[in-house]
Amino acid sequence: MAQPDVHLPQRRAGVGFLKTARGDTWYIQPLLVLLGLGAFIVYSTWAAFVGVDYHCGVNGANYLSPFYSPLLFDAPGVEPSGHAWFGAWPSWWPAFIPASPALLILWAPGGFRFTCYYYRGAYYKSFWGAPPGCAVGGPHTKRYRGERRLPLILQNAHRYFLYLAIGFLFILAYDAFSAMWFVGEGGAKSFGIGIGTLVLVVNPILLGGYTLGCHSLRHLVGGKKDCISDNGAQKKAYDCVSCLNRGHMRWAWASLFWVGFTDLYVRLCASGVINDVRIF
């Protein structure tokens, strides 16, 4: 049953891309999102394709870049890292696709962020101008389809990326644990903490804050029920996810920055540009 239509004579004068009566600096936030997300996309794409310096074994360290974890195969021509699940790079890999292990796995966390409810709202504004800002004119079109039709209806797959992202959390936590064990002379491993260890430990913590505050998770752990109080554990889980969810934007940005920084730190250590400091 269609809803009634309305006639808006006053709109016609004020409609237009970027038209607004707002006099404040409404454009700052979408601009910062554009620059922040844009910089991350450029850096992470480069880091994913480059296929080297993703593991730092200098001075017995064992730091693996989160962009390359889980490491399914070691990249061709790179010294074995000890992290590869299936050993050497497969011979069947097509020659026209860059041989980088990151390309095998980054679609999962990338898909999780792309379909995230927070990021969707942010990049629709900043990248697509739909709308550029609140009460700011967007491209006035009768073709607007929102998330009702292809391709954006696929955003509804967010929960499936969530399942994968939760798996990544365990893997990255294991990487952080592995970074606490340094290889000494004769191959013996000893417990230690370097700056890189701290960097790798902070990474799954921030990613955990972001992933476990996901709107889909909030729904799945209890939000879907109208009567949640009859299950104490479920209520507790829902409250915890809701608590993290309230800061979802902050977790999203902190974890995004840190995952990029972690890759950069490992890359700089592995390539010898900087030396990792061993605290003990």
Partner: peptide
């Protein structure tokens, strides 16, 4: 199908 919640692109305005 009637309220068409899919049109909302969650910009939080």
């Amino acid at each position: 199908d009637e309220q068409n919640i899919g049109y909302c692109n969650i910009t939080k305005c």
